[in-house]
Design a binder for these strands. Structure first.
Lengths: 215, 215, 215, 215
DNA sequence: CATGAATGAGTTTTCATTCAT
DNA sequence: CATGAATGAAAACTCATTCAT
């Protein structure tokens, strides 16, 4: 029993090691330009070994996305279950949680959109696909739940909570992607810290039922 | 002179024809899965011909992006130069302009993020790269200008106008990408019309100096 | 019209050129050990070019088999439609036809058995698969038809004509394969000419109606 | 001595266990598509262990062939040494023996032709190669011996006994392979029992001395 | 200008074999 | 002896790009 468990844990460690290497490579090169050999080299393993832990390049990739999705769900789940003095505080915590997610894996969001091309999705194993869908839905529902509460208690404007959650997610992804792009092309100063703050502040202000008493 | 001009116009027509074909292909397949042969077939030309008008696949691709960027600048430029009864109306016109852009080429925004990977950018000719940067900057500055005005006249909150423009752009791109993703994975109902409206409404509300008198 | 036809013929010539090169390689190395690069080199082409004419290694391979099957059908068809003095002469002509087939492509019969593993068949395009089945069935039916005639006119023993055709085909393939094997391992002297003759003579004798006086 | 012997017997048991597993795998998949891991799994051993008993995949494979060859020699040897009422009965017993061989390992005959490609043979150890050749020759000679007797006693036609043995073997292998192929492609009804009977009946009839009265 | 056949470097993936435990 | 994780060489296949016609 103990021995089987240990093996399983070692296996999991190796998977993590590969995923971290993959993350590093994808951070530099974008999915299509990153080769399995690059990742193997980064992980100090041989190409063949990668296939002992991931069925294909696509599946390795999807696993990276799952990793972030799981992290998102944990973080957002905490915000929902934790008690906060005010609804505003809870909302602020949600924003902070997303910032955590960004710190955890800044680039994967960029790449997640790659995942969602039908061509790529078709090649994934059904289990992986299901888990991705489940986690995505769960994350969205949790956030939507917070907005439902806010609407019910009259703290925020009365709009379709799912639409609000969609926009929350779109805003977050948009900011990450756009700031990342700005680092590449030279459009305006790259300062994600500030942009995040302003973006979320704006979003919260937009949600408020009646404007702030006085600024 | 006349003959040279005509030649030049014919050449431009051909370029457009290819770009429209490319747009159709990229809409279905994402950049890396689209082959030059796909595009040639769609344009009813031979692969070799494509290279008479575009130096490489990357350049063809970048030209498509340029096309949208130019369209954006025209549309946004109009909003800025046109007179509107109120600042709110002007702002609403800006949102409508972005909706136009989305109609013009829904997917290219998705793909534009592909362009901005350093690997891809490196391969572009400096002129193209410069033009992309110029147009991007110009678009951003124009939008930022509108916000500067709004701030100056006290119509909107006093925040860094560039940051506001960034967020505006990020929100727009985020909504497009996320709604597109939802069409692929099955997370929530795909309804870009509504999401756009709610998103821009929220953004505008967030910008308002003092909340609406009463709802 | 003429130009399209010429192109088509050139294409066909190229296909033949590749198939002949492939035949040479398969003759030396057996299917699994022969690489597409070997074939390309033999055909003095690049590996990529092979894929312009054949979808995959399996399809190139299957096309080789088709080639022999078509040849068999032509040869056997001639025997059936031609008039012969006696039934024995017709039967002898059938045997001779099979010898022709052997000369046309001695090794492919060996390889044809490789084709018929379910794993390989699964990967073929349905059209190719259908044609292989059709030609195989047709060849068998034609031979069976000759036996049906022989039985009807009382020239040969009354057995299921399809079974007889099966055995005829099995004997032919068996002789080819076994003689080929003997060339590799050193079991007995390799002399296909004689073995063919004795084999077919035996087969014909076995078929004759009037057997030994009493059974 | 006793302990060494026991060890040796245990070793032999293990070898057999692996070979039986290999046979099962090769029956389903053909040589090149069967992996050592497949075989290891079937034998409930680890891949590494296989190499403690067989130098390579080729040698494991060749050992399987040896196994059938030995079985053939035993069966055919019995027929030769046993007494039968008539020569016809002896011949019938030979046919029955081959049917036994087919039951013992239906597919390996199919695969034996794989073995006899020069590429594969080159990689085998000389001892193994020699044993294969010896057993093959022995089997052939034994069968040929029966025909020599038949010729000498005037029971069968006077042809080169080695050629007759070759044809006997070719007919047997041909029937097995062709019936196996028919199970894959859909040419005619798969019925090996009947085909075997008709084939051997035809062969025996063909061998009979007294042919038709006059030709 | 236009063509499209040919190229060949580059990618993913497989699997027989080894070797540290 | 047995293990099984790791190896890495080799294979099939793709596709942006070129160039003779």
């Amino acid at each position: 029993m103990g021995i089987k468990e240990r093996k399983e844990r070692e296996r999991e460690t190796r998977r993590q090691q590969i995923m971290i290497a993959a993350k590093r490579v994808f951070t530099e090169k974008e999915f299509e330009k990153s080769t399995m050999e690059d990742i193997a080299k980064e992980a100090e393993l041989s190409p063949g070994t990668l296939y002992l832990y991931f069925k294909s390049k696509d599946e390795l990739y999807a696993s990276l996305c799952l990793r972030v999705l799981r992290y998102i769900n944990i973080k957002v789940g905490h915000v929902v279950s934790d008690a906060y003095e005010t609804y505003e505080a809870k909302q602020a915590a949600l924003m902070a949680a997303m910032h955590d997610v960004y710190d955890y894996d800044p680039l994967i969001l960029n790449n997640m959109f790659h995942l969602q091309s039908s061509e790529t999705l078709k090649a994934l194993s059904p289990e992986l696909l299901d888990e991705i869908n489940d986690l995505s839905r769960q994350a969205l529902r949790t956030v939507a739940g917070m907005f439902t509460d806010g609407i019910a208690t009259g703290r925020i404007i009365d709009r379709n909570p799912i639409a609000l959650a969609d926009i929350f997610w779109a805003l977050f992804s948009g900011v990450v992607l756009w700031e990342e792009s700005k680092r590449m092309i030279n459009v305006s100063r790259f300062n994600i810290q500030e942009t995040f703050e302003v973006a979320f502040d704006l979003f919260q202000r937009g949600l408020r039922r009646s404007g702030p008493p006085a600024e």
